[in-house]
Design a protein around this nucleic acid. Structure first.
Lengths: 235, 235
DNA sequence: ACCTGAACACCGTTCAAGT
DNA sequence: ACCTGAACACCGTTCAAGT
């Protein structure tokens, strides 16, 4: 009940150069919490706690939870390198770039979910990625207005795939859930008379046991083949 | 401060046949709240309030908020009719079905968001929709394992497109946000020196003013053209 | 200017208690 | 069996007060 003692002088040393809060440290902390414990753990309060401060402090450096998400996505996507467009190889380059972007989005589970929620991104790193995609597409011989459409839809597909794929990965804890549901569908199909959902029953094995990455690569092949066909029409 | 009077007998009449809580009424209420006020308004508490009860009451009929979402999606998707597959017209049928599914998912803003979050759906209505898609794809001459991949990716694309498209629609209140961001990108591109993001700068007009539905239809055409090419290879 | 942390207005879910 | 609503353990964001 006495007045608290003044802190011993050697404590001041660790106190004074107290790590300053920065947008960057906040984003880094958020990313490490994300990759360690999944999307649900990334709360303003949790990040603040990790930085030994109160939740309010973050709002001096970040406008929103939404803006923080966007900054996290930007930081994650900056590692994607875009190749110099080569008109001879646009098909291969396009596929490689999509696979690379999907890889980065899938690497940190949870970042794809943020990417899906953050549509129409305004952040430099993501614009660079989109620019690289457009650069390759411009070598394909497709008219300009179609290039916009193709880039838009390709980016959407990569993001959506990465989002779906990341549900099979662990630390968000939804992984078992995903497998459980596959089992449910299998059981349900078995329980059904032959004339209900006939196609799903017939394809049971291929649907439930095909792997996502294979499906994605197939979709890229199909999409690029279709683009090439469209380019041939107007040479 | 007296003990409360017993209720007059005519009140009992309105009380006793009190509308029973049902899974169905809960789902219907949730859907009407969703279409009236957007996804953020669909909370367990709000739905309970709408049905004149406490939040806990819902858990007798619905396991989870997640399960409620899935039931909402199922109810919404049940209106999609799948055509009898016609081997002569599989391209047109496939495109029509995708457009129809996208239309339904976009019609009630917010339902596409639920669809995106509810992956690997186990619910009858959605399985029926998938079965119809597979039925058409089986007419295309593509080998079975590719059909699974094609159906999977096509469904993913439709869902992702509908999700993105619904951001431009109103009552969730994010509509203005979307337009504001488009303006931000435009301003940002203008402020950049010519050698940064060159492709995005060159395509500024086409990228920012192309409409989503056009892009989606183009993507469907490209994808179906690619599928046809794959079918030709193995006749 | 930056930081603090209490306060506000919410969440989903659980559970003892009622009918 | 179904329903209730208080209670629990959280959220994001704001804001007066401190340094």
């Amino acid at each position: 009940m006495n007045a608290p003692l003044p802190p011993p002088p050697w404590r001041r040393a660790t106190r004074t150069p107290r790590r300053q809060l920065t947008t960057e440290t906040i984003v880094d902390t958020a990313l490490s919490v994300l990759s360690a414990e999944g999307p649900d753990a990334v709360t303003m309060r949790r990040i603040a706690h990790e930085l030994d401060t109160g939740p309010g402090s973050l709002y001096a450096h970040v406008q929103d939870k939404r803006e923080l998400h966007e900054l996290m996505l930007d930081a994650a996507m900056r590692v994607v390198e875009t190749p110099e467009p080569d008109p001879q190889n646009w098909r291969t380059q396009l596929k490689q770039l999509c696979l690379e972007q999907a890889r980065v989005l899938t690497e940190t589970p949870g970042i794809a979910q943020i990417a899906m929620e953050t549509l129409i991104p305004t952040t430099p790193g993501i614009l660079v990625a989109m620019d690289g995609m457009l650069g390759i597409l411009r070598c394909s011989g497709i008219p300009d207005d179609r290039i916009a459409a193709a880039g838009d839809m390709l980016a959407l597909h990569v993001t959506a795939y990465a989002y779906e794929a990341s549900l099979w990965q662990s630390p968000s804890g939804q992984s078992d859930e995903a497998h459980r549901r596959l089992g449910q569908i299998g059981d349900y199909l078995q329980s059904l008379p032959a004339d209900q959902l006939p196609n799903l029953k017939a394809m049971n094995h291929a649907m439930l046991h095909g792997t996502e990455p294979d499906h994605f690569e197939f979709a890229l092949d199909v999409f690029i083949a279709g683009l090439a066909a469209h380019a041939d029409v107007r040479p």
